[in-house]
C-alpha cells in the first residue's frame, strides 16, 4: 500500500509544472524515504532529478518499494481538477496498474477521486557522482528566470562566466549582444534577495537558452536557485522545495567543435 498526502495541492501542481515541459512521462519511485524521480529529456541533453522526502508529506505510507510510470500530460489534466487549497492524496495498491488522486476541499464537503493508468517505462538512470564544483552561485530564483527570459531574445545560447567579482550572463545573435552582470550582494535585508558566489576557479560555460528557460518553470517552488558549475561538466540548477525536498536539473554544456 502506498499513500502520500499533501495539505495543499498547489505544491504538487508546481512540481508537475516544473517537469512537464521537459518530460512527457516519468517514473515516480516510491519508498519509505519518499518519492524520487530521475529522467532525461528525449534528446538526452538535460536531466531532471526530483526528491520529495516522506517527512515533508502530511501523511506518508509506503509498505513496499513501488515504481509508478506516469504520463505527465494525463497527470496534469487530473491536477487541473484540484483547487490549490485542496488536500491531495495519492494512493496505489502494491503491484497496482493504476494510481488514484483524491482531492478534498478545505471544508471537507467536496471529495473527488481520479484514477489514472500507470505505464511501464524503460528506466534509464544515470549515475551522477558527487562533485566539488568550481563555482556555486546562489541568487533569487525570479532574477534567474528574468535573465534567462531576457537573454533568450538575443540568441540560442547563454554564456555563464563566473569569477569571484560576480557572475555574467551573455548572449548574442542577429539583433546584437546582451550582457547581464550580477555582483555578489554586500548586505541584504532579506536572505532570499542575496546573490552569493563560492568560487574555487573561475569558469565560463555555454548553455542552450531553451533548456534554462524550461528549468525556470520551477521558480514558484523556491525563492532562491543554486547554479553549480565546473569546466567541461554539466551545469546543475537546484531549487530547494521548503520542508519537502528539491528539484535538480542537469544540463550538458555546448562545446566548441
Amino acid at each position: 500500500m502506498f499513500e502520500a498526502r499533501l495539505n495543499a495541492a498547489t505544491t504538487l501542481k508546481k512540481v508537475l509544472d516544473a517537469i512537464k515541459d521537459l518530460l512527457n512521462e516519468a517514473t515516480f519511485d516510491c519508498s519509505d524515504a519518499g518519492i524520487q524521480l530521475q529522467a532525461m529529456d528525449n534528446s538526452h541533453v538535460s536531466l531532471v532529478s526530483l526528491t520529495l522526502r516522506s517527512d515533508g508529506f502530511d501523511k506518508f505510507r509506503c509498505d513496499r518499494n513501488l515504481s509508478m510510470g506516469m504520463n505527465l500530460g494525463s497527470m496534469s489534466k487530473i491536477l487541473k481538477c484540484a483547487n490549490n487549497e485542496d488536500t491531495v492524496t495519492m494512493k496505489a495498491q502494491d503491484n497496482a496498474d493504476t494510481v488514484t488522486f483524491m482531492f478534498e476541499s478545505q471544508n471537507h464537503e467536496k471529495v473527488s477521486d481520479y484514477e489514472m493508468k500507470l505505464m511501464n517505462l524503460d528506466q534509464e538512470h544515470l549515475g551522477i557522482p558527487e562533485t566539488d564544483y568550481s563555482c556555486v552561485v546562489r541568487m533569487p530564483a525570479m532574477e534567474f528566470a528574468r535573465i534567462c527570459r531576457d537573454l533568450s531574445q538575443f540568441g540560442e545560447s547563454v554564456i555563464i562566466c563566473c569569477t569571484k567579482e560576480g557572475v555574467k550572463f551573455s548572449a548574442s545573435g542577429d539583433v546584437g549582444s546582451a550582457n547581464i552582470k550580477l555582483a555578489q550582494t554586500s548586505s541584504v535585508d532579506k536572505e532570499e534577495e542575496a546573490v552569493t558566489i563560492e568560487m574555487q576557479e573561475p569558469v565560463s560555460l555555454t548553455f542552450a537558452c531553451r533548456y534554462l528557460n524550461a528549468f525556470t518553470k520551477a521558480t514558484p517552488l523556491s525563492n532562491q536557485v543554486q547554479l553549480s558549475m565546473s569546466a567541461d561538466v554539466p551545469l546543475v540548477v537546484e531549487y530547494r522545495i521548503p520542508d519537502l525536498g528539491h528539484i535538480r536539473y542537469y544540463l550538458a554544456p555546448k562545446i566548441e567543435e
Partner: peptide, 14 residues
C-alpha cells in the same frame, strides 16, 4: 558555433 553535447558523454547509464 558551439555544438550541444549529450549528457551521456559525462555520466554513465546504470
Amino acid at each position: 558555433t558551439p555544438i550541444q553535447n549529450d549528457l551521456t558523454e559525462y555520466y554513465s547509464l546504470i
